[in-house]
């Protein structure tokens, strides 16, 4: 599953769930898992294929945080806003990231290099404030270090 169209693979997914209760959410799940987002072209095709209005598909997609409408950035930054991190200054970290990257939470940077997300707890409160980039955890983050951390993720790809 690479092309954001209603490829043969998605048709298989649709057929698997067709006529089952709650099928739309399950189909959207499989699409989200495969692409990291639900492309508009796919939703449009899905709407025709399932005979479900696009508006209804979007009502579902936008209701659940899990579904994304934008292609995710290459590197996902997750800033922890759990209680410990929050008290230890996570809002400052988040603000700095927003300013440095010129991006709002839940969105991608213009060059598509980063996606900025806020998460509830990364499970290492002792290291607060914590952020993760992809699978790497950064603990006791200071505002001044962020620029350096980001520079580790150049445009190598």
């Amino acid at each position: 599953m690479t092309e954001p169209k209603l490829s043969e693979d998605i048709k298989k997914v649709v057929e698997k769930w067709r006529n089952k209760k709650g099928s739309l959410v399950m189909i959207l799940h499989e699409i989200q898992n495969a692409y990291g987002y639900v492309p508009r072209e796919t939703s449009l095709e899905l709407s025709k294929y399932l005979d479900v209005p696009l508006a209804q598909i979007y009502e579902v997609i936008t209701f659940y945080n899990y579904f994304k409408l934008e292609k995710p950035g290459t590197h996902r930054i997750a800033v922890c806003m759990g209680t410990a991190c929050y008290l230890k200054g996570a809002p400052v970290i988040l603000q700095e990231l927003k300013e440095l990257l010129d991006v709002e939470e839940g969105h991608n940077t213009k060059d598509g290099l980063f996606a900025l997300d806020v998460v509830r707890c990364l499970g290492c409160c002792g290291l607060a404030p914590v952020m993760m980039i992809d699978s790497k955890v950064y603990g006791k983050v200071k505002k001044e270090e962020i620029m350096n951390i980001l520079s580790e993720y150049g445009k190598e790809e």
Binding site: A55, Q56, Y58, E59, T62, F63
Partner: peptide, 9 residues
Amino acid sequence: VWALSFLER
């Protein structure tokens, strides 16, 4: 027509 919908929550 389904032009209008509720988005988000």
